[in-house]
């Protein structure tokens, strides 16, 4: 049996919709004069939210910064979380004051249940 087949076999079967967690996508724009690199943004968001809500609090949010949707030129990004944690994530974003070397501000563009709904 090939390795690729084994990996395919190890993949979990997708949960039925009723058992799946309801997701929300938050699109935001960073207001800053500097260019913001993805790694800076990711580490800053995780660090701030971990500091504010703690490991236990953050584990309940299912928070994830979607890497392939971050646009470095337009400074637009998308965060995924569950439907119960939207206001927690947004409040946490407001506590970020610096990214890299510059001061920043976050503008929340839209909250949607699907990536398509964000109309990026």
């Amino acid at each position: 049996m090939g390795v690729s087949k084994m990996i395919q076999q190890e993949k979990l079967k997708i949960l039925p919709p009723i058992l799946r967690e309801k997701e929300r996508y938050i699109s935001f724009r960073i207001i800053s004069e500097e260019t913001i690199v993805y790694s800076d943004l990711e580490s800053s968001i995780w660090q701030t939210l971990l500091e504010f809500y703690g490991e236990r609090g953050l584990s309940e949010m299912s928070m994830w910064l979607v890497k392939n949707l971050y646009n470095e030129v337009k400074k637009i990004g998308v965060i995924r979380c569950n439907n119960k944690s939207v206001s927690k994530v947004i409040a946490g974003l407001g506590l970020i004051t610096r990214l890299g070397e510059g001061r920043v501000n976050f503008k929340i563009e839209k909250v949607s249940g699907t990536i398509r709904g964000l109309r990026l």
């Binding site: 206001s87 927690k88 947004i90 409040a91 407001g94 004051t97 001061r103 501000n105 976050f106 929340i108």
Partner: peptide
Amino acid sequence: FELRDPMILTSMANQ
């Protein structure tokens, strides 16, 4: 840089 989006302020008040 200390101004915040209205949604951020309402979310914080919600917390």
